[in-house]
Design a binder for these strands. Structure first.
Lengths: 210, 210, 210, 210
DNA sequence: CATGAATGAGCCTTCATTCAT
DNA sequence: AATGAATGAAGGCTCATTCAT
């Protein structure tokens, strides 16, 4: 029938409408303290309707994560930047990631706990989020290493370290750490220096460690 | 009365007994899915007894965190190492932290979510854990910078980045990320390189970025 | 929508159904010894349903009180009687009040204790019950005093004394006092004499006290 | 043993100490919301000790009532007054009762509810309190009637009405009724007029109702 | 006699989920 | 497809009472 695409569109709109409500309530109260009643109210639908689009309350989290991952167009981010200057690339990328993270802080704060606890969600999130981004970063780093522009480190682990740093700094932010929060905009620069140049300064009587 | 110290000792033992039970159940099921009944059973006491020692279920998390922080003798860790070689120091310190984190993975997985969600817990954890460790690290880094052995970065932010990396890598571990999990023992070395020397290799026709 | 009034009617019916159950159990066991589970069973609904219609267990008492007050059409009672003969008016009014009180004895026995203890309930009951009836009685007495048919006493206090007597006699009844219980039907007459004519007989050698 | 009387005295002192604590806590929170722990603390003893002197929490109420009744020396009150002037006697007696009631308001508020609800307490209270006072009042009234100084009403019912009025006015006071509370000191006079002379004023063209 | 830690039954309330309309 | 009333299991927590010390 010709109505199919229309229906699908309407259904997708409803889904999103519900997810928006869920995101709002989850962000404010956390997963467990958010009731389906409140989510329904926030989404402007009835409780029953939620269950027409999602299997369960946990299904809402899956939906949110999936949507999060769909929206992430990391590939673009990475390729958007001219690969010319490494530092500029790093800083720009970091800056974008940090802006993203900050804007989703509340949602992360709400969803992360449940993701940490629920094995299935954990798996989904890991696949759709961690591995996807890791893959892209690995490609980039690998290329740099191959080109002799970067130290031949264990690329996957280095990437994990980077990702970890992002996640961890977000966690610190969530903890309310003032230093992290106020320095958020400076972090891309600091990180770039840290990651690219390292902390160590060669003593004068030493050779530059390469 | 001579019984006072005995009383206190017995009370402390009970507290720990209860916390052990709580840790076990929290680790297995997470905070919200763990019922006080189950915790009581795991601890070998009655439900009522729990409330003779803790204000509420959330109080158990506070207790666990506090105990965690008490056990942490980071000061020793830092000073134990000869400050001779910076890299050795970093690697050794990282190794110890990573061992610690890994051994407490389950507990973290159980407690972290609730800490993220509950504002009061967040504050407590931040004070007792994040800031305490941050302070020690800052001292160390600052000294190195002052001695001209390290690049004059924004020390507090650099420290947060380090801490974030620890936390974040633990989170990746919790996500079940195979790369992180299998590379756990190699991470201290990778991180040391990353943090101390940086990724970038100077091209021959370039100046050393500072 | 045309369903709204139907909905409302059904909801009102449910409310009453629940209140009936609550009244039954409260009357039998008193407020505190009545469990919501038992109330639910007595009302023929689930425990959860109670909370769809009332905020809390205490809310049931409020509901009962309100319903009690709504049913009371004291105004009619007062005006129904011909104002012709004062004594007849008193006796008739008393008789009606006493019949009312007796029929609600159990409910009062169940609700009064909680009303006495809970400040909020106390206030509500005072407003909806005591003051409403007091106002009507005051009007009546005031009119009689103004007409010179009654002694110019402190009307509000006299009314409180009357109300107190009703309440107090009900309490004695609840205590199981046999004299009160068996004399219940005679009390209107006795009270009328007491209140209208007083106990004192003038000695022959004295003036009539006024 | 010679210690018996000493022991008994000490035991009685403890009992009273506990009852004082109970009275304080009951008065503040009501019977059900008062915990034995709090009572113990208020009495300066341990929870266990309470159970060495009383069977149960309800036993405390029995104890309080009994002590209340013991302290009441109504006989003295009644005989203290010169039987000369009836009105003076009534006013003086009322005044004393009202002062008593007011001073015990809180305790009544706390104990009455439980007395109303618990059949056993009800019986005890009725015997020790209601009937004892009723008996004394009946004697007095009966004598007055016999002496031709009072109208030959149904004495027991009249007495119940009086008692009811006391109880009822106390209840109104407890409800927080401002009129009752502020007029408390005037009530003895108002009541005396009400009870002795009645409200009705004879019209000039009528005979004095007898 | 006094203590107070331990008990565990039982309570009120919440909430995800279902289903008749 | 939407609704929202009804459900009832489950949960955290309180507290009167006991008993070993």
């Amino acid at each position: 029938m010709a109505q199919d695409p229309i229906r699908q569109q309407r259904a997708a709109a409803r889904r999103n409408q519900i997810l928006d409500g869920a995101a709002r309530v989850f962000a404010e109260k956390g997963f467990h303290r958010a009731s389906t009643r409140e989510i329904a109210r926030a989404a402007g639908v009835s409780e029953g309707t939620i269950y027409n689009y999602f299997d369960s309350k946990a299904g809402l989290v899956v939906g949110l994560m999936t949507r999060l991952a769909e929206v992430e167009s990391l590939g673009d981010e990475l390729s958007d930047t001219m690969p010319g200057d490494i530092r500029e690339f790093f800083v720009a990328t970091f800056r974008r990631r940090f802006a993203r993270l900050a804007s989703q802080e509340k949602l992360f704060r709400a969803v992360l706990p449940e993701v940490l606890v629920d094995p299935e969600l954990r798996e989904t999130f890991h696949q759709q989020y961690v591995l996807r981004i890791a893959g892209l970063l690995e490609q980039y780093l690998q290329a740099q290493v191959a080109a002799g522009r970067m130290r031949p480190v264990d690329v996957p682990l280095a990437v994990r370290s980077l990702q970890g740093m992002f996640v961890g700094l977000l966690v610190l932010r969530i903890f309310g750490d003032e230093t992290t929060r106020q320095g958020w905009d400076d972090l891309p620069e600091v990180l770039a220096t840290l990651i690219l140049d390292g902390l160590r300064l060669p003593r004068e009587d030493e050779e530059v460690a390469q």
